[in-house]
Simulated assay, not measured.
Amino acid sequence: MELMFSEYFQPGGFFFEVRKKNFSEAKSEEVVGAIKSIEVNNIDDAEWINIAKSIWDFPFFARMYRDRCVENGADEKKYDAFTMDLYQATERILRRA
């Protein structure tokens, strides 16, 4: 799972692109969908810790790049909805709910 998340920071990955002011709604949905697909009740503590360490700062990164992406033409409401979805999906994992 951790390798999958590292792909988002590689060239062409979601966070690599938003850092360059390129917001893709499809890629944002992919990130949120990957996090939502994690079944926290079906993983052991060690795996949960590794996943939590991998994703805990995703909402921070998304928020940090928001203004850059909006200035470059991203739809403000869609970006804000994405950041809220990402925050909620990440919080569910961190709370192990």
Results as ranks from 00 to 15, higher is better:
Asp45Ser: 14
Glu29Val: 10
Glu30Val: 12
Phe15Gly: 04
Ala26Pro: 09
Asp75Ser: 00
Thr90Lys: 04
Phe16His: 14
Glu25Gly: 10
Phe14Lys: 01
Gln88Phe: 13
Phe60Gln: 13
Arg68Thr: 15
Ala34Pro: 03
Met4Ala: 12
Glu30Gly: 13
Met84Val: 07
Ser28Asp: 00
Cys69Arg: 02
Glu47Asp: 10
Asn50Trp: 07
Asn41Arg: 11
Ala46Val: 08
Asn41Thr: 13
Ile35Thr: 00
Asp75His: 11
Ile55Leu: 03
Ile35Asn: 01
Met84Arg: 14
Ser54Gly: 15
Phe9Tyr: 13
Ser6Met: 13
Ser37Gly: 10
Ile51Phe: 03
Tyr79Trp: 07
Ala81Trp: 00
Ala62Met: 06
Phe60Arg: 12
Lys20Trp: 10
Phe60Cys: 15
Phe61Gln: 12
Ser54Trp: 07
Ile38Arg: 02
Asn41Leu: 11
Asn42Phe: 12
Ala34Lys: 00
Glu47Leu: 09
Lys21Gln: 09
Thr83Ile: 11
Lys36Cys: 03
Phe82Met: 03
Phe9Met: 10
Glu47Ser: 07
Ile49Lys: 13
Thr90Gly: 02
Gly33Ser: 10
Phe16Glu: 07
Gln88Ser: 13
Val18Cys: 07
Lys77Gly: 04
Phe23Trp: 09
Asn72Val: 07
Glu30Pro: 11
Gln10Ala: 11
Glu39Asn: 10
Thr83Leu: 06
Asp44Thr: 01
Lys36Asp: 05
Ser24Gly: 07
Thr83Trp: 02
Leu86Ser: 03
Glu7Asn: 15
Glu7Phe: 15
Ala34Asn: 14
Asp67Ser: 11
Pro59Ala: 09
Lys21Ser: 08
Thr83Lys: 05
Asn42Met: 11
Ala62Gly: 10
Phe61Arg: 11
Phe16Trp: 11
Thr90Arg: 06
Val70Leu: 02
Ser6Asn: 13
Lys21Glu: 06
Phe9Leu: 07
Phe23Asn: 06
Gln88His: 12
Ser28Cys: 00
Phe5Glu: 03
Phe5Gln: 07
Met4Ile: 13
Tyr87Leu: 14
Arg68Asn: 09
Arg19Gln: 06
Trp48Ser: 13
Gly13Cys: 03
Thr90Cys: 09
Trp56Val: 15
Tyr87Gly: 03
Phe15Cys: 01
Lys36Leu: 04
Glu17His: 07
Thr83His: 04
